[in-house]
């Protein structure tokens, strides 16, 4: 039960974060993929099934708050969530640097999947926002690895 509350709370925080970024400086929305961070974090904590289900849920929420075809982000995030859960069982991704590389790779895979699906559905290239969107995996990995390290440190000190 506590996990569900944590997930719901994380989703609310992410929506609030996106709303704030949109009000402060809209191009910042391109820079961060906060929903993927929730998916990757809980997939590492739990297992690949959680990752896939949470990926689908977060992706569909993102799709419902965007214009376009409902399900494109959902599909990309489902695969990312599953991969995150599966790979984190095989390799150690707990140190800050490893988690940075891990998030960077996963968010890049998700971005490629999303771009391919988008191009396939709309038969056109994605909007790149003067190239800002290409920085998304890097900035997300950076903020993700710092956040994950902080969360782990907090957990450690509590236990």
């Amino acid at each position: 039960m506590r996990d569900y509350i944590k997930i719901a709370l994380s989703i609310v925080i992410v929506i609030v974060l996106y709303t704030s970024l949109g009000k402060v400086f809209p191009p910042l929305i391109y820079l961060f993929n906060f929903f993927s961070l929730i998916v990757i974090y809980f997939a590492i904590q739990k297992e690949e099934i959680w990752g896939a289900c949470l990926g689908a849920a977060c992706g569909l929420i993102q799709d419902s708050l965007s214009v376009g075809v409902f399900g494109v982000s959902g599909l990309a995030k489902t695969i990312t969530g599953y991969l995150a859960g599966y790979l984190s069982k095989k390799i150690d991704v707990l140190s800050a640097f490893r988690s940075f590389v891990f998030i960077l790779i996963l968010v890049s895979i998700e971005f490629i999947l999303w771009a391919l699906l988008y191009s396939f559905v709309f038969s056109e290239k994605i909007s790149v926002g003067k190239g800002t969107i290409f920085l998304q995996p890097l900035s997300t990995a950076l903020i993700g690895s710092v956040t994950f390290s902080m969360l782990r440190a907090t957990k450690k000190s509590q236990s």
Binding site: Y18, V67, G68
Partner: peptide, 14 residues
């Protein structure tokens, strides 16, 4: 306006 498009802010708003 309460929110911008999460995939591309130049596409829609809420």
């Amino acid at each position: 306006t309460i929110g911008l498009d999460l995939s591309n802010f130049l596409k829609s708003t809420i």
